[in-house]
Design a protein around this nucleic acid. Structure first.
Length: 501
RNA sequence: GGUCUCGUGGCCGAGCGGCUAGGCUGAGCUCUGCAAAAGCUCCUACAGCGGUUCGAAUCCGCUCGAGACCUCCA
């Protein structure tokens, strides 16, 4: 029996607004697409929340035996600041600002995005396609939509004809938009606009010859529409209908709505079975965004240099902070919350370190009540994650497990009272959910062998001092190390461990 | 203005009609040469007002407050 059969996943489908049982089209295969970054500047913490959320979805579905293909794109062309016709091309704009080639901008911020992902332990997707790598396919899709009569050409641009589309299909379903009202607004449309209706959107956009990024098409020089690339790349790698499409709440309209329309307009069927939307990271109750000026860059977080930050925070503390809330709730940033998260993470992390090195002696006089408790905790991890990827409740279970691990450590509970198989399952689950599912890896306090060795020497000296009952000296070693951020902990058995503050 | 979401204890945050969330902080105890860590215990909530129900933080209505989307945004 596969794990996903034992712990069936349910998730909130934005399309219905309800929690539904997840049934992949072709189990055990699962296709996930999530909207990646537009690489015109550095990603901020808010962006990262979404990527972290889908990273966990990807990790968990893989963990419970699904064969997941996870596609996350890089938008490196065609992202205008609006569809209305006078929009500025984000990549071009940054290129001018930084005096670089557009593709240099793309490379620079793609690299930076990858570095940040690595720091936050966000796994690379199975496929990371780029818009510029799929110009041919995008032109093909525009042609298909034109052939189906759902688009029109105007001055070298191609627009999706929403009103025409609505004669046979629905538009606005995902975001709950009242399109009649949107169409009402059409009368106010600027006369100079090439669009027939204000709700129409560009699937191919003509550009002038001095636009650096441009491609030849049947309609002249231009760039692909932003909404189009996701439709093209998702259908290319996951099929015309696939399981999960994710993204931030703010992409629901118009981006995802347009994706649906394009795919239906081209291929005649709903592209996505389950839509998942992550909620926003807020600062003092307001959405974190570049335009509001309340966003931090990851590196500002690690250095603690941003004015809104009291101190620096490690990537795993931040990851833990995000996982403590549900992906569909807003999460409010604050120094207090982050400090609390940092301590909580350290607690779980030290249990992780300990249990990894702990092995069952082999024989046991089994105490079934402890075995039952441990087994229930393991099952609870799966149940919580299968329940709409509830990382918050899963963490609560992990804290419970951490307490049990500390019982092993202190000798409150003897391993000889635990069935070896149960212990093995428990250990694998704790390590697995921490590292593989939630992606909370251990942050090595000391990366330097020299330093590590030096601390060990000092620990040996302190042990000697303690056995000699030279407490003045042993306290001095401990206090002086503490002053530079190394906390020593005396174990019952005389062993001394340390942690870096 | 339209659409929608949210309002939980000192703080952050789960909760999807009945059963302990959890973390951080604070207080006490145990262990310890003293600390730290750990263990145990305690403090405590569901914005307000009505309604449905045997029973509501959880469902319905109203009021107040906050936010998101409706233009680009994870």
């Amino acid at each position: 029996m596969k794990l996903y059969e034992k712990y069936p996943v349910s998730l909130t489908n934005s399309l219905s607004g309800k929690k539904e049982v997840f049934e992949p089209l072709n189990a055990p295969f699962v296709g996930i697409y999530s909207c990646g970054p537009t690489v015109y500047s550095e990603v901020h913490l808010g962006n990262l929340r979404t990527f972290t959320s889908f990273d966990v979805v990807y990790r968990y579905l893989s963990f419970i035996d699904y064969k997941v293909r996870y596609v996350r794109n890089i938008t490196d062309a065609g992202h205008l600041t609006n569809d209305a016709g006078q929009g500025v091309d984000r990549i071009e704009e940054s290129a001018k600002l930084e005096s670089l080639e557009p593709m240099e901008i793309v490379q620079k911020y793609t690299n930076s995005f990858h570095e940040v992902c690595q720091l936050f332990n966000i796994l690379p997707p199975s496929i990371e396609p780029t818009a510029t790598g799929h110009i041919v396919e995008q032109i093909e899709m525009v042609n298909t939509i034109l052939a189906n009569g759902y688009a029109y050409v105007a001055n070298g641009s191609v627009y999706f004809d929403v009103r025409k589309f609505m004669e046979k299909h629905t538009y606005g379903e995902l975001s709950g938009r009242n399109i009649d009202e949107l169409l009402e607004g059409t009368r106010d449309l600027d006369r100079q606009d090439e669009k027939r209706n204000s709700v129409d959107f560009a699937i191919w956009k003509a550009v002038s010859p001095n636009h650096i990024q441009r491609w030849n098409s049947p309609w002249g020089l231009g760039i692909p529409g932003w909404h189009l690339e996701c439709s093209v790349m998702s259908s290319k790698y996951l099929g015309r209908q696939f399981d999960i499409h994710g993204g931030g709440m703010d992409l629901k309209f118009p981006h995802h709505e347009c994706e649906i329309a394009q795919s239906v307009g081209a291929y005649g069927k709903e592209p996505v079975r389950y839509w998942m939307h992550t909620n926003m990271l807020t600062v003092n109750g307001e959405k974190m965004s570049k335009s509001k000026g309340n966003s931090f860059l990851p590196k500002e977080l690690f250095s603690g240099t941003h004015p809104l930050l009291d101190k620096s925070y490690s990537p795993m503390a931040v990851r833990f902070f995000m996982l403590q809330s549900h992906y569909s709730s807003t999460l409010d940033f604050s120094n207090e919350a982050l400090s609390a998260a940092e301590k909580g993470y350290k607690k779980l992390s030290s249990s992780l370190t300990f249990i990894k090195s702990l092995n069952h002696p082999g024989t046991s006089t089994s105490d079934s009540s402890i075995d039952q408790t441990l087994k229930a905790l393991v099952a609870s991890c799966y149940q919580n994650m299968s329940d709409d990827f509830n990382t918050a409740t899963t963490l609560a279970v992990l804290f419970e497990m951490s307490s049990r691990i500390n019982d092993f450590k202190s000798g409150n509970v003897l391993l000889s009272n635990i069935d070896p198989t149960v212990f093995d399952t428990f250990k694998k689950a704790y390590v697995g959910f921490m590292e593989n599912v939630l992606g909370l890896k251990q942050e090595s306090g000391v990366s330097d062998h020299l330093l590590e060795g030096t601390i060990k020497v000092l620990i040996e000296l302190r042990k000697k001092a303690r056995t000699d009952r030279n407490f003045a000296l042993s306290d001095k070693i401990r206090d002086d190390l503490k002053a530079i951020g190394v906390q020593l902990k005396d174990g019952k058995d005389g062993e001394i461990t340390y942690s870096i503050e």
